[in-house]
Structure formats: structure tokens, C-alpha cells
Amino acid sequence: MSRPLLPKGFEVELFTGRADGTVVGCSAEVARRFPDFVTEPDRRNLEYTTPPEASYQRQLELLLEPRQRLRPWLTERQLTLLPGSTLSLGDSRHFERSDPDNPYHGYIESTYGTLVVTASVHINLGLSDMPALFAGLRLLRCEAALLLALSASSPFLDGAVMGAHSQRWLQFPLTPAQVPLFRDHAHYVEWMAEQLAAGSMQNVRHLWTSVRPNGDARPHQLNRIEIRICDLITDPLLLLAVTAFAELRLHQLLADPAAHDPLRASPLDAQALAQLADANDQSAARSSLLAPLTHWRTGRTIMAADWIRESLETMAPLANDLGLTSVLAPVQRVIDQGNQAMRWVERQRSGSTIAEIIASEAQVMEQQEVRGAEPNETDSTPPLG
């Protein structure tokens, strides 16, 4: 018998700017006008979250509604939402504080500067059983590179081609620099206390890693896994597909922990697995779907796209059982056509300027929001799971 779908929610970070792709910050003004939007330390970023909801159809609505409500306000000011996860046409030499009086924002600026001025999407998947949560955390940590490979959308910075598909992940200051593969909840609580005492973390939120436990009273009360590695996925249907990919991996784990928990199914120990995961993440940041990765189960080198193809084959029956086949379909399209960063780089090589790419993709982003909200009359597939 299939398990019910997991509750899920999103934290979406966005850049604002002009229709020509120029980044223009307005997050403080947006937050005052729309209480469900919040500021990031740099005013060029704004963020909104969706509440936990198991239904993919409902999550699609929750993803689109804040943007649809914000768009007229931006249009009045000749602004729009911009794609990409770095300051593609921005100025990363300067930090633009959204709240000059916030001491934590001051710490972020002085410690990291504009390395943290990025946009991304965090995917939260609900699990309340602690052994299952930490097993899921281990699995997704060891496969986070696949999610970055699908979502990479930051090949540009300051109007230049950076030579990587996710400049965001290469520059973002992972904190602390080394994070273990947690054995269980007690290990996580003990490790967090050590980091806070040593000052390597400023607070319980200051764990900036690819995948982390999350909850309203960390580290003691946890109820979800937060995937932080993904670049901004502007297409809402692709975001749901990447989420379904991760959720299906968790369902496979829950059905057979011995076969899918890296601590039980890999010949490598926890330290080696953590090092493997971090190395894979860096490789995926550089080359995304074309990245050579080391498989945690076998130790063999495998291209990210091939690993994703293999995963899609193994999860196909479960996706059908859970009604997620159509939700998952955009993942295969990314494998066939390339992710956003790969398509942008190809356009730039073919003669388009970065400004032209960002401007046209900002329009595509708005169109995707409209298409995602409208039923496709030619599509005979059932509603999203």
C-alpha cells in the first residue's frame, strides 16, 4: 500500500529589477506593502514562503498567488521579477542593506559581503519520525548534487560568463565548512551545541549546508528536511517536478531503509560519505548535468544526467502508484533539453548578450506563472498529485 504524500513547502528568494534585466532592490518596500514577503540582508533580494501542504496542485497555487499579487505593484514602478540565482547584471562590489539597523544584517555584510546575495528556492519535506528524518537527511545529502544539476541557473555574474553553471553554489559561504553526516538526532543536537559554543555558527539558523534538519524549535524539535542546494527554479512546474523527485527518493527510503540509507547501504563510512557529497556538490556547481559524480552506493564515477536517468527508471512504478508521473515529467525534459544555465550559456555562445538573455527570460518567467495557473485543455493527464 502506498504511503500518503509528504507535506511540503517552499522558501522562494527572488531578485527584482527592470525589464532590461538591471537589478533594482525594493525588498523593504515590498515587505511593508505585502506582509507575506520578507527582506533578506541585501535589499535586492526578497523572499516568500508557502505553508505546508501535501497536494502538488495546491502547492502550485500557493507558489503562484504571491507573485501574481506582487506583479501589479512592481509594474506600477516599472519593475519585474528577474530569473537567475546571482547578480547576472548587478554590481556585486557593493552590499545594499535592506535594514541598516539590523545587527545580524550587519554581521552578514561584514563577514560575507555579496557572496550571499543570491536567489534560490528551499524545498521543505515533512517528516516527524526522527530515525526516518535523519535517514532521509543522509540520503538527500548524498544526492543533493542531482538536485543542483537539475536547477542550475547562475552562469553569469556582473555581466560576465563565470564558466560554471551554478556560480551561486560555488561562491556561497557554506557554514560551517565541514558538516558531518548525522548519525541520529542526538548526534545533531550535540554537534549544534558544539558549533554555537565555538562561535562557528551565530544561531541555530546559521547552518548553511546543502540539506539540513528544520523545525520551529531547532535543534530539539524537528519536523522536516530542508533542501537548500537548489538554484532558483523560475518555472513552477519544474520546481514541483524536482520536489517530486526528492519526495519519491524519500518514499523509496521509507519503504526499504536498508537499501537506501547511505550509512547502511554504502561501503563508505560517515566521514567519507560527507566528503563525497560535498565534492559532488562542487562538481555539479561547475558542470551541472554534465558533471562527473561519485555514486555513494558503488564508488563509481557517473555523469549527473545518467544518475538522474537511473533514478527516474527505478522510481517510475512508485510515481505511478502515488499519482506523480505527470508531476515528475519536467525532470525528463531537463535531461533532454538542458537546464536553465546550460540553455543560457548556449544562447550566449550563439551571439546573444547576457542582457538580452536575462530580459527575455524575465518575460518567460512571467508567462510560466500564467501558464502554471491555467489548465491545459489539450492535456489529458489528471490533476497534479
Score class of each variant (00 low, 15 high):
Leu70Arg: 06
Ala279Tyr: 12
Thr381Pro: 05
Thr75Ala: 15
Leu133Cys: 05
Pro100His: 04
Ala28Ser: 13
Pro7Leu: 05
Ala132Thr: 15
His122Asn: 01
Ala119Cys: 03
Val161His: 12
Leu70Asp: 00
Leu328Arg: 15
Thr49Phe: 06
Val161Ser: 14
Arg228Trp: 13
Ser85Cys: 11
Leu196Tyr: 05
Gly338Asp: 01
Thr86Pro: 09
Leu239Trp: 02
Ile227Ala: 04
Pro52Val: 01
Leu263Gln: 08
Leu196Met: 11
Ser110Leu: 08
Thr314Leu: 09
Ala355Thr: 05
Ala285Pro: 11
Val116Ile: 15
Asp184Glu: 06
Pro72Ser: 07
Arg224Gly: 01
Leu147Arg: 15
Ile302Glu: 07
Ser350Trp: 10
Ala272Pro: 14
Leu5Ile: 09
Ser2His: 14
Thr234His: 13
Pro180Tyr: 02
His187Ala: 14
Phe182Gly: 11
Leu62Val: 03
Thr234Leu: 09
Ile225Asn: 08
Ala258Asn: 04
Ile335Gln: 07
Gln367Met: 13
Gln363Cys: 15
Glu194Trp: 05
Pro219Cys: 13
Leu240Gln: 05
Pro103Cys: 01
Asp281Thr: 04
Arg58Gly: 11
Ala217Gly: 00
Phe37Thr: 03
His185Asn: 10
Arg138Tyr: 03
Glu313Ala: 12
Arg58Lys: 14
Leu64Asn: 09
His122Leu: 04
Asp129Lys: 12
Asp184Ala: 15
Asp336His: 08
Thr301Phe: 00
Ala265Ile: 06
Ile302His: 06
Arg93Cys: 02
Tyr104Ser: 15
Ala54Pro: 07
Ser154Val: 07
Gln275Thr: 05
Phe15His: 01
Ser85Gly: 10
Leu276Ala: 08
Arg309Asn: 01
Arg58Glu: 03
Trp73Ala: 08
Thr209Asn: 12
Leu276Pro: 09
Trp73Leu: 10
Pro51Trp: 03
Leu322Pro: 13
Gly199Phe: 02
Leu268Pro: 12
Gln178Met: 14
Ser85His: 01
Leu238Ser: 08
